[in-house]
């Protein structure tokens, strides 16, 4: 989003389209992101969570309480990601 954009009082929101650049950082390497479990509040890198993949999809669980953080299913032409168990993701840029 353009941070130099001027404040306009009658523009409460813009299109989500403007998030593209900011969200792009989350695509670079999500596994390094620090993830807070919505169930128990424990934080840690996604890369250190528990991945179960002997299953119809890939299920990532909290290493502390084993609640489902996210689930990724591959339909071939469609990738489905649910993130019910994630309260917060933090990406640190060097």
């Amino acid at each position: 989003m353009d941070s130099t954009q001027e404040y306009s009082p009658d523009q409460e929101h813009v299109d989500g389209n403007a998030l593209a650049g900011a969200l792009d950082q989350f695509v670079a390497d999500l596994t390094s992101a620090d993830c807070m479990c919505a169930g128990c509040g424990t934080s840690g890198p996604l890369a250190a969570a528990l991945l179960y993949r002997q299953a119809p999809g890939m299920v990532l669980r909290c290493p502390s309480c084993t609640a489902v953080l996210l689930c990724l299913t591959d339909q071939g032409d469609r990738q489905i990601l649910t993130v019910d168990g994630v309260r917060r993701l933090v990406i640190s840029t060097p």
Partner: peptide
């Protein structure tokens, strides 16, 4: 696909 991974 990749190389990928930034944690390990």
């Amino acid at each position: 696909r990749g190389p990928v991974g930034g944690w390990f």
